[in-house]
């Protein structure tokens, strides 16, 4: 049997036995269902083990024990409850940057909802050429391709929409500890657990595509962060004090962003506005906003329906769309 055929046989075997984990599937029945000989079935079982699936195998039966926490097409697609986001999955062990791959796919006509995932990035990017530390087997590095029909002017709120989807996912693990630092950082316990890099390709009238890149710290231990970001960074594992399945986190995020995007396309942030304000780490706090070399201080009052931060600057409510925000810590 040629290798691709063995691959597909192994996938079919997996899809049968994983329906009832811990249960014995008699070899004889599997041979009938898969219409192959015992030696081929044995090799398919061996292949599943190579793919890091735990399967008990003997002459009489196959028993599914556990799936690996790998960001593979099979694992992500298994039980993924979305309609468009992630229906096309492109998974890599190692890439330079998932956003670059997704942009390239977009230029070549990839469909709306295409998702690019990597276990590791060697040139993970943040805004303005900053580095997103992307070591293997711990985080999720994912880019989502959107092809909206709305006007480019409506595109900027996509960052905050994504933050809301992430915050909902994190809240399933660490309820009450999740905050959005406007507009695009998601905090757990006051530290950054995820970053978002949204890139737009558009002309004046229409959006060609949007690529949302997200880096999520899932299973990093404190010591695994580079020293300079250690006081500011956290992971889901650190918050819940156990290892978390990355596949599960990613599936939850894809479901949440599909919903948030559908709502946003239909009526902007209206449905999520209250939630976004509730998650806000800034509203009611004194903040500083740095734009270039200029620093403006004031109190964050609100986030408006367009996702802009409303700031009190000497008695005037000013809508903010740009700049680096920091919370001003006062003594005493």
């Amino acid at each position: 049997m040629a290798e691709p055929e063995l691959d597909s046989l192994a996938e079919r075997l997996l899809s049968i036995i994983r329906t009832k984990p811990g249960e014995r599937f008699p070899t004889e029945k599997l041979l009938q269902k898969l219409t192959c000989d015992y030696d081929t079935l044995r090799r398919a079982g061996k292949l599943l083990a190579d793919w890091k699936y735990r399967v008990k195998r003997n002459r009489k039966a196959f028993t599914f024990i556990k799936a690996p926490d790998l960001l593979t097409e099979i694992e992500i697609a298994h039980g993924l409850k979305t309609k468009s986001i992630g229906r096309t999955l492109v998974c890599y062990r190692t890439v330079k940057s998932t956003n670059d791959i997704a942009s390239g796919l977009a230029e070549r006509g990839a469909e709306h909802g295409t998702v690019v995932v990597a276990d590791q990035q060697t040139k993970g990017r943040g805004r303005l050429g900053r580095v997103w530390h992307s070591p293997p087997e711990t985080g999720i590095y994912v880019s989502i391709l959107l092809r909206p029909s709305f006007h480019p002017e409506r595109a900027p709120a996509v960052s905050i929409m994504t933050a809301a989807a992430l915050a909902d996912t994190f809240s399933q693990y660490a309820p009450g500890e999740v905050q959005i630092k406007w507009p695009n950082d998601v905090w757990i316990g006051g530290k950054k657990a995820a970053g978002i890099l949204t890139e737009l390709s558009a002309d004046k009238k229409s959006v060609h595509h949007i690529v949302i890149g997200v880096g999520i710290n899932v299973n990093q231990r404190v010591g695994q962060f580079p020293e300079e970001i250690r006081p500011l960074a956290t992971s889901l594992r650190r918050a819940v004090k156990r290892k978390v399945r990355r596949v599960e986190v990613l599936q939850s995020f894809l479901v949440n962003i599909e919903r948030e995007y559908r709502n946003y396309e239909k009526d902007g942030l209206r449905k999520s506005h209250a939630k976004i304000r509730r998650y806000s780490a800034l509203i009611g706090h004194d903040i500083g906003i740095r734009t270039g070399n200029a620093l403006v201080e004031g109190r964050a009052l609100d986030i408006d329906i367009e996702g802009r931060l409303i700031m009190d600057q000497n008695g005037t409510a000013v809508p903010i769309t740009a700049g680096e925000v920091s919370v001003v810590k006062r003594q005493g």
């Binding site: 805004r127 595109a155 709120a157 905050i160 507009p183 978002i196 949204t198 890139e199 002309d203 734009t291």
Partner: peptide, 28 residues
Amino acid sequence: VEAMKLMNEIESEVSGRIVKVMAENSKP
């Protein structure tokens, strides 16, 4: 051009030669 952390790569709709840069780096 960045708005609310959305990075918008501006593509030229004309070909020719850049005569003047009219905006200042990292300014609104």
